[in-house]
């Protein structure tokens, strides 16, 4: 469904992504793991058109999308939950959710999706008129995921959803991600430093080092791979 083919992305003269190729099939959960600074976030930003690649292709259902503006990529159904949550701090929870549905016009469907995310995360209903900036880290992560769901994504990109959260909350968030994948057949591409959690959730995984993909395998194989265990699982 989503195909990233040999992309090269630069920040000025510094090459951040070297010949990155990733494929995610419909309904799949795929994890991208790697150390700090490996290029994981850049990969997502290149897919979303925020830091476009200098060469290579990004295809959605076979159609090239790497030349599109970010808003048109969102329109195609690729939606990102960025690292650090990036909640609009001076907007209420409800307004943040409405911003997620910015490109949609069908009010009835938007209302349906609002109800849906509020059943996924009941706390958001309680907090709906509170400013986004006043939420706790875990609540913000729930809001960030919900805001992305409000766009009715076909492919949901998640950047470090576990960052800075308590273990119990992480568990809850990962369960919800699995649920979203099951209930709506939403394709999920997940970037994580928390390799253990990510690989337990995912069907397949990619390992990234210094801007290159160094390993591709099923999540189960990666979890038992000696190099991966040593480098990313701390075992």
């Amino acid at each position: 469904m989503l195909k990233v083919q040999n992309i090269q992305t630069y920040y000025g003269n510094i090459q951040a992504l070297k010949d990155v190729t990733i494929e995610v099939a419909e309904g799949e959960i795929v994890a991208l793991i790697g150390a700090n600074g490996a290029g994981k976030t850049t990969t997502l930003m290149s897919i979303c058109g925020i830091t476009p690649s200098r060469s290579g292709e990004v295809l959605l259902d076979g159609d090239p999308i790497h030349d599109l503006a970010p808003e048109n990529i969102v329109k195609k159904g690729i939606v990102q939950v960025p690292e650090g949550r990036r909640i609009f701090p001076d907007m209420t929870v409800l307004e943040n959710l409405e911003m997620g549905a910015f490109l949609r016009t069908n009010k009835r469907q938007i209302q349906q999706d609002l109800n849906y995310v509020m059943t996924l995360f009941p706390i958001l209903e309680k907090r709906q008129s509170q400013l986004g900036g006043t939420l706790s880290g875990g609540e913000q992560q729930m809001l960030a995921i919900s805001r992305a769901l409000m766009a009715r994504p076909r492919v949901l990109l998640l950047d470090e959803p576990s960052l800075g959260l308590a273990p119990l909350i992480i568990k809850q968030i990962f369960e919800i991600i699995r649920q979203i994948n099951k209930e709506n057949n939403t394709t999920i591409f997940l970037v994580e430093q928390n390799a253990n959690q990510a690989l337990k959730l995912a069907d397949r995984g990619y390992v990234m080092e210094n801007g290159r993909i160094t390993l591709v395998d099923s999540a189960a194989n990666l979890l038992s791979n000696a190099d991966v265990r040593k480098a990313y699982l701390g075992i």
Binding site: P70, V79, P82, R86, F88, M91, E98, M99, G100, L103
Partner: peptide, 19 residues
């Protein structure tokens, strides 16, 4: 709303589809 979102976080505004 698009203006406020852009003011609060410009690249996040782009990620939700604001031109």
């Amino acid at each position: 709303k698009a203006m406020r979102a852009t003011q609060q976080d410009l690249s996040m505004a782009r990620l939700v589809g604001v031109n």
